[in-house]
Design a binder for these strands. Sequence first.
RNA 1: GAGCUCGUAGCUCAGUUGGUUAGAGCGCCAGGUUGUGGCCCUGGAGGCCGUGGGUUCAAAUCCCAUCGGGCUCCCCA
Length: 418
Amino acid sequence: MAKPKYTSHVGMVDILPDESPKWRALENIIHEEAVRFNFEEIRTPIMEQTELIVRGIGQLTDIVSKEIFAFEKGDSHYVLRPELTAPVVRSYVEHHLDQRGGSQKLYYIGPMFRAEKPQKGRQRQFHQFGVEVIGSDDPVADVETIAFMMRIYERIGIRNFELKLNSVGDPESREAYKEALREYLKPNLSKLSEVSQKRFEKNPMRILDSKETEDQEFIKNAPVIQDYLNEETASHFEKVTQYLDDLGISYTIDPYLVRGMDYYTRTAFELTSPDLGSQDALAGGGRYDLLVEEIGGQPTPAVGFAAGMERLLIACEELGIELAEEKSVDVYFVTLGGAARSFAIKHLPKLREAGVSATMDYMSRSMKAQMKDANRENARYTIIIGDNELNEGKFTLRNMKESEEDSLSFNEILTKLS
RNA sequence: GAGCUCGUAGCUCAGUUGGUUAGAGCGCCAGGUUGUGGCCCUGGAGGCCGUGGGUUCAAAUCCCAUCGGGCUCCCCA
């Protein structure tokens, strides 16, 4: 097939009419559950200042170092947002949302951008939904965040997954642990992979997350952060696990779980699914108690997660879960001749005002073609209008499923359908 | 950034050791039925065989390059 002159950019896909209903169904579920959890929606711009993303996520992360779409215009440095935690925190600080009182329970749905090579479950423009609870230190916030995430999958019917949990420590225990880790790795530093060596000074914990083969034997026997958590952090983590147990949410503790963004502290979690292939992370998140201050606000604890919507839909596909109902329309006007067409166009609004979805042929086609179109559109009823009907003021209402017809006035039809 | 693999109609795919006007199913349009959809029958439209170059009397088919898709590694949603 010859390539069309214009195509979408690599890794940026159109959501076509056959696909969009399931997206809307998913969005509706997220909005509904958010209401039940009393989370409020926040919408931020697609672009942010480059500096915010670099500072927020971390200079050395993969996201910032190689996956960002950035450009300049005049003196401004724009970046297409690769994730939404840093932008939401920016908004929180910029608009003093702390002044609304209490903790802010925010959620979002929207497109994100990362300049990666696309593959299954990975696009350059993709969609996430997520939650950010800003202002609470309480393990309840961690667990409610996780519970919201799990609730979405539960409601959709995706149950085949693993929730991995870890604590990456507060600043104090983290420093102690990093020191121990450096101490442990130092003798073999030159044997580690290049990436890991680069991370050694600034972020040795990411080494634990390494998939490089030469790193594995050192990771295997590395000290575990749990042994370095101070009392407060350990007790926070224990409360999180206890609440999760109370809720019947099962998880596995993975002491080497380290997430891709530098801002995480204490609770970290990740949800993976065997139905996804190699890009198996459905969702991930954790606490980021230092980020608000890093971005210029008051020291404020926070926790959140982000979930990939394409990946969720892939899992649905694998599991045979249909999110959207078949398309349909209540009424299709089948018109014969100009008078019938002008009658139809005048009466469409009356049906719609009554809450009945209604359409008609736009192409002046034969009756047979109109009936065929009505069938394709999955119309519940056709209203057939010709000269006979117009003269008598009675129209043929055809039930398409039952293949039964009635002769009724328009008002009778309106009453019957609304 | 690296590897593997695939590009033929809107979609899914045939196309023999290179050999005349490149095919099927589905979908689309029309007719069979001058006022009735789905099922059926008939017909039609729709192809620079991804693109460029090479080999050959002859290329969808062989070779090279290039672009695009899919999958994998890395990393992440």
